[in-house]
Design a binder for these strands. Structure first.
Length: 735
RNA sequence: GGAUCCCUAGCUCAGUUGGUAGAGCGCUUCGUUUACACCGAAGAUGUCAGAGGUUCGAGUCCUCUGGGAUCCACCA
């Protein structure tokens, strides 16, 4: 009794083939069938070699962009290895994308006339959770549309409780090992969004601002920020600057807008004697360089700007003014007191802006959690140097080393709600921090007081992402098939089986943000590298070669192209003619060409199908079988050609040369197999030549399947009359 | 300021370890009622950014110059 599924197939097989290939009739129905049959699970090849890729988790809350479509490379690898008989795991996931998501959510609140300050922490978190759950299916459906053979039964979310538990554990371990520590550091603080940003999240803009030459007693210095003068704790000059040698180490008396004061003069290499007057005021609490200078010279920190963006009590009568207002007021006052020598109105410099709201970033001192990076970076450098991890293309190793060799400690605290809350509690009695693996501690680990307050911050999203390869595998299981000797089914963790994973494939733009951090944290927590190979693809730009971005308004939705050209054509176009790691401009003519290629492929199938109807039937044969039955010289030649192609294509995929594989498939199938072989066979077709033609075609479909999964599946089933899927058929043999 | 990548046919891009240039689209001419006009055959098109060097030989390796892109650091 055929199942409903098989009946569908049977009808499909009996239907005459359309003259023109219509992807819309084919693609949607096929994916569901694969999924239903469980073909995406590594368990389809329980005894195969282990091969695994963890999908870089897309933002759960946002639709896919073209960068995600490039994950087709992972699907090619996974489908290829699955057909080779490997137990191939491709594990999907979704990222909570901390600040990004909270920002989008707050925009929506804003449009409803509300703000995050109208809700308490728990309510806000719950609201964002529901917001994300509502949008989450969109991204997953799009991955399906692209034909990605992900094992959905192992889907993970970065905020799943079992993932969070692992993140806590890692943090606790870092704390116990004194890698995670608390320190006051200047952060890029946006007083508008009320949060700090990593250096990577700050954008810079060139602006023309006044440069004020201010008198400090006997000295004059140039500054763009006179309002921070209340926080000055020293003046600095270059140690080799003869003009100022006599002042170094002295305290000088200065007139200020508030009162007379004394300030000391120090010498530091950081000062450029050719800029301005060669004298710099040092404000450790409000400037990154000054902070460093302050640490070197043990200067006090004096914060004069608050987190609300207003001057605080140290600014005397200027307290309460916003920075911009204060600057104006201070300058006016100084002019009155004749403390300004001159103003250069045409000074051009770069200022830091919030990448979300474009407001000026204020460097402010804050207590934060940091991770000490040098020891972790050292191991990560070694892992690549010694070849334990290989980066493809190799040229990206330079970027990797450059980043790790100059690494700074990692600030992992974020002042957002949408994320994993840091499991650290401060004692209100003794100010000691108690860190746990999640649960609220009973009392302070030092003074045993019960007055504990949890840090309100959450982890930087990249902190949880850096643990993704092992965290996902530790929380999923591999189902072992019953064997002859042991009929019971059993499970072991995916971690035991698949870690380290085989390949991490992602865009080169997040090599340092993510890949390097995964290597460091993976090595630290598990003692093993998280993956053996890093494969990096380039960016997909708009048709004019410009980076797609919302602000430019040139973002193209990959799903629209899938509708228009078919997922197979989009997939093929993304790898064809684009060497790994290079950027590409989206090309409509290429997409069109690849759509025509799928039509060509379809019509080869149609030709074969029409000859089957005339009475000749397909049977499963190997290349060796074909060699035995081949009598005609041309048949023999084409059998050998196809055999050679199998080796070539396999080789290209093994070397991550997907473009060459795709180009060769295109060229060989169209301008070899179709233009010459079919034209030749056409006039002399008999049972043997039909078998040879058909078998070679099936082999070509298999070679093409990792690239164009849908159409090859449809044709495979039509031609062979099999209900089995091409995706679990075996890769053709070659030397 | 530091770094990386790119500059190859009109356009978008390939070109494996150095052996006198390739694809797609476009262009020209011709052909085809039966696998496909979303087709086939034939053809034109390049001082491989520029200059120097290494080599018997360089698009490919080295140096410099010019142009573009990206990343990092950010100078009061």
């Amino acid at each position: 009794m055929p199942t409903r599924l098989n009946l569908d197939l049977w009808y499909a097989r009996m239907a005459p083939m359309d003259k023109v290939y219509d992807h819309k009739k084919i693609e949607d129905k096929i994916y569901g069938r694969w999924e239903e049959k469980g073909y995406f699970k590594p368990e389809v090849n329980p005894d195969g070699a282990l091969y695994s890729i963890i999908l870089p988790p897309p933002n759960a809350n946002a639709p896919l962009h073209f960068g995600h479509a490039m994950y087709v490379i992972e699907d090619i690898l996974i489908r290829y290895h699955r057909m080779l008989g490997d137990a191939a795991l491709w594990l999907p996931g979704a990222d909570h994308a901390g600040f990004e998501t909270q920002f989008v959510f707050e925009k929506q609140l804003q449009s409803e006339g509300k703000s995050r300050f109208d809700y308490n922490r728990e309510t806000l978190y719950q609201m964002i959770w529901e917001f994300v759950q509502k949008n989450r299916g969109g991204m997953e459906g799009q991955l399906r549309k692209l034909g990605f053979s992900l094992d959905w039964s192992r889907m993970k979310f970065t905020l799943d409780p079992d993932i969070i538990a692992i993140v806590y554990k890692t943090f606790k371990k870092m704390y116990d090992d004194q890698l995670a520590y608390r320190a006051e550091r200047l952060v890029n603080y946006c007083t508008f969004d009320g949060t700090s940003f990593s250096d990577l999240e700050v954008i810079y803009e060139e602006r023309k601002d006044p440069l004020y030459y201010i008198k400090y007693g006997p000295l004059t210095l140039a500054t763009t920020r006179p309002e921070t003068k209340f926080g000055d704790t020293a003046l600095a000059v270059n140690p080799d600057d003869a003009r100022y040698k006599k002042y170094v180490g002295e305290e000088i008396e200065i007139e200020t807008v508030l009162a007379k004061a004394r300030i000391k003069v120090i010498a530091d290499e950081y000062v450029d004697p050719t800029f301005g007057t060669g004298v710099v005021k040092i404000t450790p609490a409000h400037d990154f360089n000054d902070f460093e200078v302050g640490k070197r010279h043990d200067l006090p920190m004096k914060q004069v700007i608050g987190f609300d963006g207003k001057m605080n009590e140290h600014a005397g009568k200027f307290a309460g003014l916003y920075v911009k207002q204060a600057r104006k007021a201070v300058v006016e006052e100084m002019q009155k007191k004749d403390l300004i020598e001159k103003i250069d109105e045409n000074y051009i410099h770069r200022i830091a802006l919030c990448y979300k709201c474009k407001n000026v970033i204020e460097p402010l001192p804050m207590e934060q959690w940091f991770v000490k990076m040098e020891p972790l970076a050292k191991e990560a450098i070694d892992a690549v140097r010694t070849g334990k991890i290989k980066i493809h293309p190799k040229t990206f190793e330079k970027l990797y080393f450059q980043f790790l060799e100059n690494i700074r400690d990692w600030n992992i605290s974020r002042q957002v709600v949408w994320g994993i809350r840091i499991p650290a509690w401060m004692c209100e009695k003794c100010a000691n921090w108690t860190v746990t693996e999640g649960p609220t501690p009973e009392n302070c680990s030092k003074c045993k007081s019960k007055d504990l307050v949890q840090d309100s911050d959450t982890f930087d999203t990249w902190f949880s992402s850096s643990q993704w390869p092992f965290a996902t595998l530790m929380t999923t299981d591999y189902r072992l098939q019953p064997t002859a000797v042991d009929s019971r089914r059993s499970t072991i963790s995916d971690f035991e089986r698949f870690y380290p994973t085989t390949v991490m494939e992602t865009g080169y733009d997040i090599l340092r943000w993510w890949v390097a951090r995964m290597i460091m944290v993976g090595l630290y927590v598990t003692g093993k590298q998280p993956f053996d190979n890093v494969v990096l693809h380039g960016l997909v730009n708009d048709p004019y070669g410009k980076k797609m971005s919302k602000s430019r308004g040139n973002v193209i939705n990959p799903m629209e192209l899938v509708d228009q050209y078919g997922a197979d054509a989009v997939r093929f176009a993304l790898v064809y003619g684009n060497a790994l790691g290079n950027d590409q401009a989206l090309s409509y003519s290429k997409l069109e060409a690849m759509r025509k290629f799928s039509n060509k492929l379809w019509n080869i199938g149609r030709f074969i199908e029409m000859n089957k109807v005339s009475g000749i039937k397909y049977q499963v044969l190997s290349i060796e079988d074909l060699k035995k039955i081949a009598k005609h010289g041309n048949d023999k030649i084409w059998i050998e050609k196809v055999e050679k192609w199998v080796g070539q294509i396999s080789d290209y995929i093994d070397k991550y040369q997907f473009n060459l594989a795709a180009e060769n498939l295109y060229e060989n199938i169209w301008h070899g197999f179709a233009d010459f072989y079919i034209e030749d066979v056409k006039s002399r077709i008999d049972e043997d030549s039909y078998l040879i033609l058909t078998t070679l075609y099936i082999i070509l479909l298999k070679l093409l399947h990792p690239f164009m999964p849908f159409i090859t599946e449809e044709l495979y089933q039509k031609i062979t009359g099999e209900c089995d899927s091409i995706m679990i058929s075996s890769w053709p043999k070659h030397d």
